[in-house]
Design a protein around this nucleic acid. Sequence first.
DNA 1: CTTATTATGCTCTTGTTGAGTATAATAAGG
DNA 2: CCTTATTATACTCAACAAGAGCATAATAAG
Lengths: 310, 310
Amino acid sequence: MGKDSQRQQERHAIGADLIAVLVAAPNGNPVVLTIKDATALPSGPFELGHRSLQSGLRDWVEQQTGHPLGYIEQLYTFADRDRSGEDSPSRVISISYLGLTREEPSHATPPGSWRNWYEFFPWEDHRYGAPQVIADLIEPALRRWAGTGEHEDRRAKRLGRAAVCFGFDDRPWNEELTLQRYELLYEAGLVEEAVRKEEATSKPLVPGRAMDGDHRRILATGIARLRTKIKYRPVVFELMPPAFTLLQLQRAVEALAGVTVHKQNFRRLIEQQDLVEETGQMSSETGGRPAKLFRFRHAVLDERAVAGTK
Amino acid sequence: MGKDSQRQQERHAIGADLIAVLVAAPNGNPVVLTIKDATALPSGPFELGHRSLQSGLRDWVEQQTGHPLGYIEQLYTFADRDRSGEDSPSRVISISYLGLTREEPSHATPPGSWRNWYEFFPWEDHRYGAPQVIADLIEPALRRWAGTGEHEDRRAKRLGRAAVCFGFDDRPWNEELTLQRYELLYEAGLVEEAVRKEEATSKPLVPGRAMDGDHRRILATGIARLRTKIKYRPVVFELMPPAFTLLQLQRAVEALAGVTVHKQNFRRLIEQQDLVEETGQMSSETGGRPAKLFRFRHAVLDERAVAGTK
DNA sequence: CTTATTATGCTCTTGTTGAGTATAATAAGG
DNA sequence: CCTTATTATACTCAACAAGAGCATAATAAG
């Protein structure tokens, strides 16, 4: 009896927060919704009045941004003790979500709320070749860090991880490893969040805007999830306007993935999968030959277990 | 002030539960750990003493089964109100995990705790051809259900979903759709969990052992996750003994996926990826030509972002 | 010494993917 | 009007991966 009520006590000393990685891609810019001068992701408490976690999230996001959420997916739930204050009597469970929305809402959100996500991860954008910062800063710093491992096999492991993550030694760049890369930099003490509690460090940090708590890690999780998802589910269309050209679609995919794709192969893939249909309209905004406008064929979702792009 | 403390109140009226889908594969049998005469998945409260969610789970699973967990992955978190009692003053957040363990622990767990997971999903085992129950019961019942839709497009959608999920009309069987299939059957009122609250229904149900609450749905989620995961991550090895033959490995994969694979192609794939290395030992337990014994090459995990099997 | 059973090597065909070439349709500048 | 730049779109080809079969090797059981 006594033990049971004790347990009740413990169980109830817990709160729940919903954290959103809300993504849009207006004209090929990968943007994420932030608050507090881009130092945090929007979040809100989960309350008893909410029907479910998902609807709780939907409620306050639509209320705050004024735009409907096309797609929601749960990211991760955590409750590590060191994330809130030590010895705190209560504890918060954080449940993070990835949400996609069609347009960048300019009203109802303060200017500067939507940020290009590469402000937080400058090393993740390989659309114009590998960012200079990798060769100039990250690679030497990680090699130095790997060298400080205690045992030989520990050093080899560190070096191996770094090489896989960042594509050292002619290894291919894998855009899906966003989270692993951030965690590696964190472990190596190269991002601000990792050195906050320490004394003033002289160690130079890798550029990239930091965030409160582990919000940047959550954002990395969201980006990684989205980058893998677009390959086997047609979720990009949640970010597109009702009618779009194939190049606009390609630009959106490239913005999210952070890499460029072969134009002709991209079109072949999209068309052979019947993901889109022509609207009959043309777009001549680009200067060159006018492009056909397409719309997403929502019917494919019912027709088969459908793949994504690339 | 008043509003704030009100919110505090609401936030703290929440508890958290950890639910485990714990999987093993002793000699090619896909088994899952259950409690309460196989009507529930093992679960335990998340307490303040736990370092993190994951370690909390690890703690009580290892304590209860006496075997270490090789691999843990978060499945899903939910808190829908209708899952606990209506109008209850408190609410529980359930966080489910998928765990893989190497052996079937025969001690420390009561006999009958480990169950072949196809007891719960008889329609999911296609290793010996499509189960008779699909053609005999499921297909006709789902076609009947699809026909009761209100509008024409609603009926078409239902039929489309059913056909994709269960492979009607010569469509291919997709073993990864375990969750969608369960949810379809639930929606159609063909599983026990869906008709519990209703009056005694005359409707015949699809065979398959039911579970408390939505534990069967969670199990379906775990199976689906594992079936997709083995294709791009070498997680099967977490279920294998230290040394194994390629056929044993293949049997394990087939047991999980519920489909058979081409033997020679399977070997080609495993070997060309350098996932295993010979131990030098042979096994002659099968009767035929003795097979080489292999072990998993743990080093591959550091060498590259590695793919799985098939 | 035959048969059954399992292991393992090799081939062949097909489909997918990466990457290149060629041509069409427009705008802008002289 | 003609050239150039830019974008759209069609085709082709080589490399590779995946599905499926045949052939042969090595054992146990009768």
